[in-house]
Nucleic acid binder design. Sequence first.
RNA 1: GGAGGGAUGGCAGAGCGGUCGAAUGCGGCGGUCUUGAAAACCGCUAGGCGAGAGCCUCGUGGGUUCGAAUCCCACUCCCUCCGCCA
Length: 427
Amino acid sequence: MLDLAFIRENPELIKEVARRRKTAVDVAALLALDSDLRSVRRQAEEQRAEQNRLSKAIQQAGSDKEARDGFIQQGRAVAALLKELEPRERELEARLRELWLLVPNIPDASVPEGAGEDDNVEVKRVGAPRTFDFEPLDHVALMRGLDWLDLERAAKIAGSRSYILKGEAVLLDLALMQFALSRIVRKGFTPLLVPAMAKEFCFIGNSQFPRGREQTYSLEADDLYLVGTAEVSITGMHSGEILREEDLPVLYVGYSPCYRREAGTYGKDTRGILRVHQFEKVEQYVICKADHEESVQWHESLLANAEEIVLALELPYRVLNICTGDLGDAKVKGYDIECWIPSENRYRETHSDSYFHDYQARRADIRYRDGEGTVRYVHTLNNTALASTRTIIALLENHQRADGTVAIPEALRPFLGGQATLGKPWR
RNA sequence: GGAGGGAUGGCAGAGCGGUCGAAUGCGGCGGUCUUGAAAACCGCUAGGCGAGAGCCUCGUGGGUUCGAAUCCCACUCCCUCCGCCA
């Protein structure tokens, strides 16, 4: 969230930003609540001050019963007033917070203007899509031929957008996780295996809630939700803490299963495992000082880390600078990496690299004490290192051979017992 | 699932109706002494709102009371024991 004082002083800027980001927020109502709250709070504070004065007077009255009883009578009156003011104060606070959580972050000047995903700007394109001297298959046909995928029985178990990986596909999946994890760990990131279930505050802190609530699975009996990314759990980790400046930056690489309801995507990407309810992901996460330049540097280096992974997997890709209309509310700026998917003859998103300045830190209350002893909100960033299903699609489709087997890029082989090929010829 | 115990500042830990935003120790910062360092000694050291006076915060939310860290209720989390279990 943004600093309330900043919103108060820049209401027109907030409205403008909301418009550019195609997001609805009632700034006027928010400011009205803010002013009501301040007024009620002032009244309540006056009464509390009076209550404190009377409380001291009662003590000092000692055995002077008459004076004492007089103060107690006054105290009762003050308490009655507060009994009216305080619930109003709490209610206004809650309503204000509700609107406040909907105020989006301010995009960086380098974020392109645009209405939606078609306006994202391609920053670079790396590697040429392969030309096949045979008829390439899509990942579903390929995996079926190899007996690596069972969508029908998965649907029987868990409904649509489920899948069963089978045989060497499972080994490939796990190898990819290990591969990504080990490469990021090598860069000094601390690996984490975090809970895939988290409490509500983690989702609010991360900005998944309140918008996007319907994209999250909830476990109502236990007041928990399934995370759509390890990012949610990692944001929760340091919530409410004041970190030491010398411990920054904190570099994490988290591994977790990811759960997504994909509500409202009926009919979209229905074939295969591109858009599924569950996958695994290795996620990069950075907590750094409240410094724009440093955030930008980390944003670029998280992108570079992800690119190295994609390059090592020998996948053609491009990088997009996400436009205002397509950028998540919490982000200052975001890059997506899209890998080439031969069967679709286009690039599809596999990575998402974001920085937030202190937007998440304010929501999750993550701070640090700087050199002067001042307590500040940290900056947070994250980027995918590798997401299982989409990377499997890209890998299989791009590296398939005419006989239906798949060539394994050299960098991945150590994680597959040195094998250069996966699958038995079947075409 | 059953039975107990607990949650206080960066950490440890006292306080159990008013003089408590809170003893003490450790840690941190500054100083004295010293060629320098250590030791010793002295001082400072929670966060938030507010221009300020002031207000709020002792796990969270309610309640009792003129007044709650302290009493009552609910919830969350942690620990110990029993049961179950990968």
